[in-house]
Deep mutational scan, measured.
Amino acid sequence: GSLMYASIFGNVSAIIQRLYSGTARYHTQMLRVREFIRFHQIPNPLRQRLEEYFQHAWSYTNGIDMNAVLKGFPECLQADICLHLNRSLLQHCKPFRGATKGCLRALAMKFKTTHAPPGDTLVHAGDLLTALYFISRGSIEILRGDVVVAILGKNDIFGEPLNLYARPGKSNGDVRALTYCDLHKIHRDDLLEVLDMYPEFSDHFWSSLEITFNLRDTNMIPGSPGSTELEGGFSRQRKRKLSFRRRTDKDTEQPGEVSALGPGRAGAGPSSRGRPGGPWGESPSSGPSSPESSEDEGPGRSSSPLRLVPFSSPRPPGEPPGGEPLMEDCEKSSDTCNPLSGAFSGVSNIFSFWGDSRGRQYQELPRCPAPTPSLLNIPLSSPGRRPRGDVESRLDALQRQLNRLETRLSADMATVLQLLQRQMTLVPPAYSAVTTPGPGPTSTSPLLPVSPLPTLTLDSLSQVSQFMACEELPPGAPELPQEGPTRRLSLPGQLGALTSQPLHRHGSDPGS
């Protein structure tokens, strides 16, 4: 009898404990919600809404976190579960008819179910419309201010047509639940991603989709105040780019002037030289400038040598048109050559190039014969006009050509200096018209024969001689050997007369 009593008592207590286990969990969670309300000092109306929603959600799901349970299964099984949970929507909604099984599984994985109690606001006026909503159960109302403009029910759709707008718009009203509602919502990016994977279904979906109420604000059109608020930074940046392009296009129409201050000032006329910023005076940081632009901040801005204009002085008759350009485009679109090309026009420029290279940067340069637009006047290309890779490749080509020119210049200078040193070592320090008596009659020769300089066969020296023939050397430049009979510069000019005159010897006659 005691054994029977113990078994009955144990079973009854276990049954009672299981009955009250759900209630215990409910009270535990309710205590957490109330502690949250007390800690954050939530006001009474919002506090009442929180408690009511918790009670309804507990009775609806029995305190089970559906998302946590669903995430515990593998992905393939999750797709089947989501397809079952959203079967009513996918079967009865017209846009989803005719979709393949794979497309429906992908869509079912992207849908999220939302449960809303009465009085809950789903979308506020001015919120971004980031999702498309399908009503599965219940009814909602749409308000503009305090005026109800629409009441939607089961199988209705609200949001915005995503295929017509590249960016999400703003809501033009509040969406509030009238009863307990079940909503299926899919985010904008998720829907577009699935439709991109199934393009054959995309056309059918957009053609058959009928949005019951379009929440997009109709005033959000390009150029409206609301649109400016939504895309303020983007609009200002776009206007700045367009104004920069218009100014650079105007600059290219004036090829007669070359400016070292950047493309923003290349198009300024002579009357605007004294102004601080020219056409860019209202925004000094709008356009890029070269490193020399920092010198323009000092006094005497109108007389600054940074602004270059072609000189009108005539060229000498024998002067060549100019050196070879550094870039391939210089032959086609440049009416002034790079300062480095002028360094190779003569030997005198070679000796004085490194010492006063900055001073020569603004000297007169030889002109190319074609009066085409200036290379320095070409505006900086924006990322939309020329690819970045093209600019980098041009810079690399320019750097390689500069290296080759520097190597060639160093070799030419070394060769010229070597020839000058050899000339100085071969010439005796001094010569006299009267020579010392020699031991015999073989001493009648006034000077030792001097062998002429070897013929220069280097390509670089031939180019130097060509430049010497075309360029007029300055007075202080050293002379180079030329073709024809060679003669030492330090010898007297009348050596031929010395050989014809008898030598005057000093000596005593033994017979006297």
Rank of each mutant, 00 (worst) to 15 (best):
D249A: 07
S381M: 15
R246L: 09
K185I: 10
R385P: 13
L495P: 12
M468P: 14
L395M: 05
E160R: 02
A497F: 08
L308K: 11
S374Y: 10
V148S: 05
R385C: 05
T212D: 05
L461M: 09
S508M: 09
R315Y: 12
L461P: 10
R505T: 07
I186K: 01
Q501W: 15
W206G: 03
S289G: 13
H506Y: 08
Q254L: 10
M413D: 05
R144Y: 07
T455V: 09
E406N: 08
E141Y: 03
L192K: 08
P310L: 04
K239E: 11
P299G: 15
L375A: 12
S443C: 09
V258S: 13
S462W: 10
G173I: 01
N155K: 07
P161E: 07
T372G: 09
P305Q: 14
L398K: 01
S171I: 01
P510S: 05
S500Y: 11
S224I: 09
T425K: 03
A343D: 07
V450R: 06
R358V: 08
Q501G: 11
F205Q: 03
S289A: 10
A433P: 13
P284W: 15
P428K: 08
G493A: 07
L461T: 09
F201W: 13
T499S: 14
P441F: 09
A150S: 06
R144Q: 09
A150P: 01
G233K: 08
V464E: 12
D174T: 09
K332G: 09
S303Q: 08
A343P: 10
H504N: 12
S465P: 09
S410I: 08
T336P: 12
L417S: 03
Y165A: 07
P449K: 09
R273Q: 10
E364C: 04
L426M: 08
Y431I: 12
S312E: 09
P492Y: 11
E324K: 15
R358W: 04
L448Q: 11
P321E: 10
P168H: 03
P387I: 10
S136L: 04
D190L: 01
S345D: 11
L503Q: 05
L448R: 13
E297N: 05
A497Y: 11
G138Y: 03
A131F: 13
N338V: 10
D251R: 08
L178R: 09
E479D: 15
P288C: 13
D296T: 05
P383K: 15
T415I: 11
T336Y: 09
S312G: 10
G233A: 12
A370F: 09
V147R: 10
M424C: 13
L426G: 11
L458I: 10
P510W: 15
L405A: 08
K241W: 13
R404F: 03
K250M: 10
A411Q: 04
T499I: 13
M468F: 10
Y165T: 09
I350Y: 14
Q363G: 10
L398H: 04
P475L: 11
R408M: 09
A497I: 07
R307C: 07
E229K: 08
Q399S: 13
G507E: 11
S224T: 12
M327L: 10
S352N: 08
G256I: 13
Q254R: 12
S303F: 06
E253N: 08
T435S: 11
N155H: 10
M197F: 10
L419H: 11
F351A: 12
S393R: 08
P279M: 07
P449L: 08
D146N: 12
C337M: 08
L215T: 02
E471T: 06
M197T: 11
A414Q: 07
P339R: 13
G493D: 07
F213R: 03
P291A: 12
P371Y: 08
K170V: 08
G159L: 03
S410C: 15
Q399P: 03
N377D: 01
T407W: 05
G145W: 01
I378H: 13
G323P: 08
L242A: 11
T455Q: 12
D146Y: 03
L417M: 03
P454A: 10
L164Y: 15
P383T: 14
L195G: 03
P485V: 04
S381W: 05
P441N: 10
L152S: 02
T228H: 08
N338M: 08
I135N: 01
V347F: 04
P441S: 09
Q363N: 15
T435P: 13
F201P: 03
P474L: 08
H504F: 09
R236W: 07
K332S: 10
S393T: 05
G232N: 07
S271C: 05
A411V: 08
S465M: 07
P369M: 07
C368P: 12
Q494L: 08
R307A: 06
E141P: 01
S348K: 13
M220H: 11
G232M: 09
R385Y: 15
S243Q: 10
P317E: 13
A343K: 09
D203H: 12
L129Q: 01
R360I: 12
G298F: 04
Y165N: 10
R505K: 11
R216G: 09
E472S: 11
R505F: 05
A370D: 09
L129F: 01
Y198W: 09
A433Q: 15
P441T: 07
F213I: 07
T425V: 11
S462V: 12
E479V: 10
L143K: 09
Q401N: 06
V464F: 15
D412C: 01
R394I: 11
Y362F: 15
E295S: 12
E319L: 04
P291N: 04
S208T: 14
S136V: 09
G262F: 08
N163E: 06
G153N: 09
P437K: 15
P373G: 09
L261C: 10
A150I: 03
P437C: 13
T455G: 10
T248M: 13
E210L: 03
Q399E: 04
V450G: 07
R315P: 15
E319K: 01
F344D: 09
T179F: 02
P485H: 15
L495E: 10
R144V: 06
S374C: 08
P485E: 15
P383N: 05
D296E: 09
G281V: 13
G126W: 01
A166D: 12
S508C: 05
L308S: 07
Q466D: 14
L456N: 09
L503R: 09
L162P: 12
F244I: 15
I186E: 03
D156W: 01
Y165E: 12
L461Q: 12
E479Y: 15
P481M: 12
L340Q: 14
S136D: 07
S243A: 09
S334G: 11
N219E: 13
P305R: 09
P284A: 15
E324V: 14
K170H: 10
G145S: 13
E328K: 10
N349V: 02
N163I: 03
R238D: 11
L242T: 11
D459P: 07
P339I: 13
Q494Y: 09
H187P: 06
L340N: 07
R505V: 10
D329N: 08
P288T: 06
Y431D: 08
G476A: 11
E193T: 07
D190E: 08
E406V: 08
P485N: 15
L375H: 07
P492T: 11
K185D: 04
T248Q: 11
I142W: 01
S302P: 06
P446L: 09
I142Q: 01
R358N: 15
T130A: 08
M197E: 09
V464W: 13
P492A: 05
A343H: 15
D203S: 11
S393N: 15
L143G: 07
D156I: 01
D196M: 06
S235D: 12
P429H: 11
V258T: 10
R216A: 08
K185E: 11
D189T: 10
Q423V: 07
R176C: 06
P255L: 10
D127A: 03
T218S: 10
L162M: 10
S352L: 03
L152D: 01
G256F: 05
P284Q: 11
A397M: 03
P222Y: 08
V148Y: 02
E472I: 14
R388T: 03
G153T: 09
H506F: 06
D156A: 08
V416I: 11
E297S: 11
E257Y: 07
Q423G: 07
A266T: 12
L183K: 01
P371M: 10
G355E: 10
I350K: 05
Q463A: 10
P316R: 06
D509K: 07
L242G: 11
T457N: 10
K239P: 13
G476K: 08
E364G: 10
